[in-house]
């Protein structure tokens, strides 16, 4: 009896001792392993951290804050559908789309600003030029696993194609169908080789990454309107700054907020709560004398297709 008790107590003590040694060894091992991991990981992580995003952020922050006396612009757009006839009157493809393609060298078949033709409730159609809506509660930036798509300080949604991994979950998330993927090696005109890439011009384009309208902040900062607004023959696109509450279509300067409310502006899919920066004034081109029952628009042209080689095109 006593032997047994003594024996078990001994056993317990030795077990405790063994456990103590084991846990010391374990912690020593964990400490050594994590130290080694840290030492190995640091140069790798450090090198990677340097690259694309910081570059993009530095670029936008410097441009946005430094150049404009520490006031941050909040770029926004009003599209007056009363003046949009899908360029039927000029007999050309929608000039906003066309100018955007030419200015950004957008690979075929990307139409960063696409002119949709929507049915009107009473029959007939209206044209809706649709750039990226620059949502302030943007579903696309929320889901990006690597932070390749992000809000610039000016509130614009940009994509860093040097970081994008091409998972396309942002395309799934975008409710406006405003994101485009480089399914193959994109075709661009030869002059793109002179460009240095940054997220605000997205060119040269990278295979396997997502692209979209970037709202032309580089144009605005140098005092020009975006390509689409410049090219619109009916001056239907107003571009401006919510901070200064001003917008212009190149002919006329308006007070952004009043112009938007006095003309009953709305957002696309307002019920989703994405808070877009693009405002629409309802209409079907009546200001430029369009007959709503005249349907159809001309297809967009990518003029450099013949002069580029090594790239591929696809259909949407």
């Amino acid at each position: 009896m006593t032997e047994q008790i003594g024996g078990s107590a001994d056993g317990r003590r030795s077990e405790r001792l063994r456990l103590g040694r084991r846990s010391i060894l374990k912690w020593a091992f964990i400490a050594a392993a994590s130290g080694a991991m840290g030492a190995l990981a640091k140069p790798v992580l450090g090198a990677a951290r340097q690259s694309p995003e910081d570059k993009a952020h530095q670029h936008t922050v410097a441009q946005a804050i430094g150049d404009t006396e520490k006031r941050v612009r909040r770029w926004a757009m009003i599209i007056d559908l009363r003046s949009c006839d899908g360029c039927q009157s000029v007999g050309k493809p929608p000039q906003c789309t066309q100018a955007c393609v030419q200015g950004h060298y957008a690979p075929e078949p990307m139409e960063w600003i696409e002119t949709y033709e929507a049915e009107l409730p009473g029959g007939g159609t209206q044209f809706i030029p649709t750039p990226c809506q620059q949502c302030q509660n943007s579903p696309c930036t929320n889901v990006c696993p690597v932070g390749a798509t992000f809000h610039s300080p000016e509130g614009i949604v940009l994509i860093d194609q040097e970081r994008c991994i091409g998972c396309r979950i942002c395309m799934e998330a975008c409710p406006y169908d405003r994101r485009f993927f480089n399914w193959g090696q994109p075709t661009q005109p030869p002059e793109t080789i002179f460009q240095t890439y940054n997220p605000e011009n997205q060119s040269p384009a990278y295979k396997g990454t997502v692209m979209k309208c970037n709202f032309c902040p580089h144009m605005a900062r140098s005092g020009r309107l975006p390509y689409c607004a410049q090219a619109c023959p009916n001056n239907a696109i107003y571009y401006g700054d919510l901070e200064e509450d001003l917008a212009t279509n190149g002919v006329q300067v308006v007070q952004f907020s009043r112009f938007a409310s006095y003309n009953s502006s709305y957002h696309l899919k307002e019920d989703l709560g994405t808070e877009p920066r693009v405002y629409y004034i309802p209409g079907y081109g009546q200001n430029v004398g369009r007959n709503p029952y005249k349907k159809g628009r001309k297809p967009t042209v990518w003029s450099w297709q013949r002069s580029s080689d090594g790239g591929e095109t696809w259909t949407r």
Partner: peptide, 16 residues
């Protein structure tokens, strides 16, 4: 499924 399988480690470097 990735368009840029060469950048898959960005999931670790820049994972959100």
């Amino acid at each position: 499924d990735l368009g840029r399988p060469d950048r898959v480690l960005n999931m670790i470097f820049y994972g959100r």
